[in-house]
């Protein structure tokens, strides 16, 4: 809250200074946009921290290393006791992954213990043939926020890609 308060003070100071020099309509609209960003950030925090305890959560991220031999089109996550997740990739998403971005998927509520998870990434290989990369295995949920990173890594020797899952 200290951050927020400091930020608000600066924002107020800025608004007063700018109002004298800029077009009022544009400033009013930018001010409303700032409010939208601020509230959007608050809702993101609420979603993350206030709906259910962090300890019941698990997060899945997706990264692509290389991206030459496999381009994702869709992703499906399933498993016992897990709300299924589906995602359809846009070209911009694929490009963002190729540039080194890590895609955050919606948080998963998970009870402690072992969970069998199946992740199927449907996509295109180097020759534009459709294929599936499948990860299936057991993840262990403890009392802390479980984080899982699905990496789709090029295997140049076999001219293909593999999906691996790392947890922490």
């Amino acid at each position: 809250m200290k951050f927020l308060a400091a930020g608000m003070l600066w924002i107020l100071g800025m608004t007063q200074a700018v109002a004298e020099t800029q077009d009022n309509a544009q400033l009013e609209i930018e001010s409303a946009k700032r409010s939208v960003i601020e509230i959007g950030n608050e809702i993101s925090e609420i979603e993350d921290r206030l709906v259910s305890p962090v300890s019941t959560k698990a997060s899945l991220y997706v990264a692509v290393s290389g991206g030459r031999f496999f381009k994702p089109l869709t992703l499906k996550v399933s498993g016992a006791g897990i709300t299924p997740i589906s995602y359809v990739y846009t070209q911009a998403d694929v490009q963002a992954l190729a540039f080194g971005g890590v895609q955050p998927l919606p948080a998963i509520d998970m009870a402690p213990g072992n969970h069998r998870v199946k992740i199927v990434v449907h996509g295109m290989d180097e020759r534009q043939q459709e294929r599936d990369l499948v990860y299936e295995g057991i993840v262990r949920k403890g009392e802390t926020h479980l984080k899982m990173l699905l990496s789709i890594v090029d295997n140049a020797a076999q001219r293909s890609a593999v999906a691996t899952l790392r947890t922490w």
Partner: peptide, 10 residues
């Protein structure tokens, strides 16, 4: 890398 994902995906 999450920031970059959002940034590069527009």
């Amino acid at each position: 890398r999450i920031y970059l994902y959002h940034y590069f995906s527009g």
